[in-house]
Amino acid sequence: MVEQSIWMQKVEADPGHSQWYIERFRSLARAGEDLVGEARLVDAMVPRGARILDAGCGPGRVGGYLAEAGHTVVGVDVDPALIAAAEQDHPGPRWLVGDLAELDLPSRGIPEPFDIIVSAGNVMTFLAPSTRVRVLSRLRAHLDDDGRAVIGFGSGRDYEFGQFFDDAAQAGFTPDLLLSTWDLRPFTENSDFLVASLRPSPQGL
């Protein structure tokens, strides 16, 4: 049995947590805040009309922008409330409730592979630690051999960057480009945020 994600543990402890998160981003959007920096980077990495998987899509801000830019987007999140908000606020992509540790989109009628996979919003730190390698392996299985996975999360969230690199290697990825922000600042040993563009390892898994 797959261990429950840290996110869903939070939801069980506080049933209002998901709605708070949804309303937080709706409020920021109404205030005119820039909420699509991650999506702009991903958009620049692929040709128009790319197939994109938004892994841990939340209420849809990243995948929604990418769909409007002309890409075919599938978003997956474990929280049904977030998926419902994505469907309401960002129609266009296909939004699905699902656990990334058990990701199997072909079984749900969605062909693979994807040209790029994006996982923004600290998704990796909300996974159950025992599922991290499994999630990365499932992402690798859904990615084209020439594709890239772009994953961003902050430090101080019980997932050291070094451990992430080890987990990614175990899952069949190799680093392609490492940044400390979504606006292309270089990653250094002192960075408190990581944006990792990963390519499938030559040997794969």
Rank of each mutant, 00 (worst) to 15 (best):
P15F: 10
L184A: 12
H142I: 08
A55T: 01
S130L: 09
K10L: 13
P202H: 08
F161I: 03
F161H: 15
E12G: 10
G147P: 05
L139K: 06
R132T: 14
I110M: 07
H142P: 01
G162I: 08
F187W: 14
D176M: 06
G64Q: 05
E102V: 08
A44M: 00
L35V: 06
G98R: 11
R48N: 06
Y21R: 00
F164S: 10
D146S: 13
S27F: 03
R48H: 10
A169P: 00
V42Q: 11
A39K: 09
F193E: 11
N190S: 15
R157F: 00
F114D: 03
V133K: 07
L82W: 00
Q19C: 02
H71P: 09
L205F: 04
C57R: 04
V118Y: 00
R132N: 08
A101V: 12
R26V: 11
V62I: 14
F193M: 07
L103Y: 06
D115M: 04
G162A: 07
T181D: 13
I116E: 02
P59R: 01
S155M: 09
T131D: 08
L66E: 10
L139I: 11
N122P: 05
M124V: 10
T125E: 04
V123S: 06
E23C: 03
E33W: 12
Q4A: 14
A196V: 08
R40I: 13
E23P: 00
W182E: 07
E189T: 13
S107I: 02
L143M: 09
G92D: 03
Q9P: 00
S18K: 02
G60T: 03
G64F: 02
P93C: 10
L28E: 12
R148S: 12
P186Y: 11
L179E: 10
